[in-house]
Design a protein around this nucleic acid. Sequence first.
DNA 1: CCAAAAGTGTTAACTGTACACCCATGT
DNA 2: ACATGGGTGTACAGTTAACACTTTTGG
Lengths: 236, 236
Amino acid sequence: MDTLFKSKDYLPHLSVDCVIFGFHGHKLKVVLPKLKKVPLCSLPGGYVRAQESVNKAAQRILRERTGLENIYLEQFCVFGESDRADPQVLRDFLVSNNISIAADSWLMQRFISIGYYALVDFSQVTTAVGAFDESCEWYDVQQLPDLAFDHADIILKALETLRLMLDHKLVVFNLLPDTFTMKELQTLYETILDKPLRRDNFQRKMLSTGILQRVEKKFTGAANKAPYLYRFWTMP
Amino acid sequence: MDTLFKSKDYLPHLSVDCVIFGFHGHKLKVVLPKLKKVPLCSLPGGYVRAQESVNKAAQRILRERTGLENIYLEQFCVFGESDRADPQVLRDFLVSNNISIAADSWLMQRFISIGYYALVDFSQVTTAVGAFDESCEWYDVQQLPDLAFDHADIILKALETLRLMLDHKLVVFNLLPDTFTMKELQTLYETILDKPLRRDNFQRKMLSTGILQRVEKKFTGAANKAPYLYRFWTMP
DNA sequence: CCAAAAGTGTTAACTGTACACCCATGT
DNA sequence: ACATGGGTGTACAGTTAACACTTTTGG
């Protein structure tokens, strides 16, 4: 492990954790790697290189986990409690995986974590299993697995921030494919806010913002009127 | 300087900068220490102790600068560009003050700064001049002096965040004395938002929140109706 | 009585919500 | 034809913005 992460290459005591949100099957999801040999998941995270900006580090970590570039990414909170990472959890992980590192290694020290959340198009992502991961999968935000350290708190705080953002920034389009139906957009809003919205008024509200471009009709084969497909209006 | 800040006592590469907002004479102000011997101000800041939470560190720094406890304090952004602190500025400061520290001292390294903003009652604060400060004064936010590093950006970002917060959190009362007139509260809002508000509607809106307690009348000796004094309603 | 500033009543404009109906599509 | 779900017209309610009037104070 020390050979992978050399202390002089990274800033000590500082980590970046990413809450990667996706939307699939009417559910809000997050990417969580499962740690090898211990029954815990963690947030995809990493360290900041000595000459790398923190934002760039977050982008790099995200790229390593999802293969995606140019992703909507926002720093939302710093987690700086001195006891936020239970050392026993880390020890269990190291022992279970036969990893021995010096007790005074920089990896054994206290870490302050900078939390980022990313909004990605679920269909575009192929999660990458890291060196210390058994798997790396999408989990329903409402049914999170057991998480290491304070990572459940971090996800909760990210979700809170996302809800606040919905009101005054149009960011959720990053969670959808290029074109989508009004119904899909509404379901996404309902999922994030965890409350039902009126179909008719939602449609009007969205159209009134002027950021939706009606593209074409979507014929699903279902016995009903084919909905329009919309595209998020971006400057050409 | 090395004798004051021992590397093992603090987390390296990590600093906390506080934007301390106050309100006086119809102006929004911030506390800024002026550096000794160089024509620059900086933000009141400090480092995080090895076993101290980041929030606690911010509180401590604030206490050292203003003497106040239990202050409204909120972490708002991390500043993590690798080139955010111009090394020449730091060198000039050190040379001008005849401070010699090793080129590889932890203080000469790159720092990631965690930005906090504080809202304080101007009249309660007596600013404390630090060891490396020539002075420590209140400055008008609209007329900031020259600032070291990226500290002007940090103040701007803090102000933006404060404006956003105005809408959905009642925080500004921390900037006012215990009792105040409706006019003073309105002026504060106008100053932060940098736009005029209607006197009549503002009054109604504030009263409708139910958080204002009418206390007594304030006779100023002016040739007009004496305004009521209000108090921010806090649980007993 | 007048000027100045505080407080309140009233109305118009706007926004959000609910109910309705019409439209398109496949069985 | 009809069941299903998408799209839109409209009316009602609640909120916000604007104007006007009254009240209080000292000169």
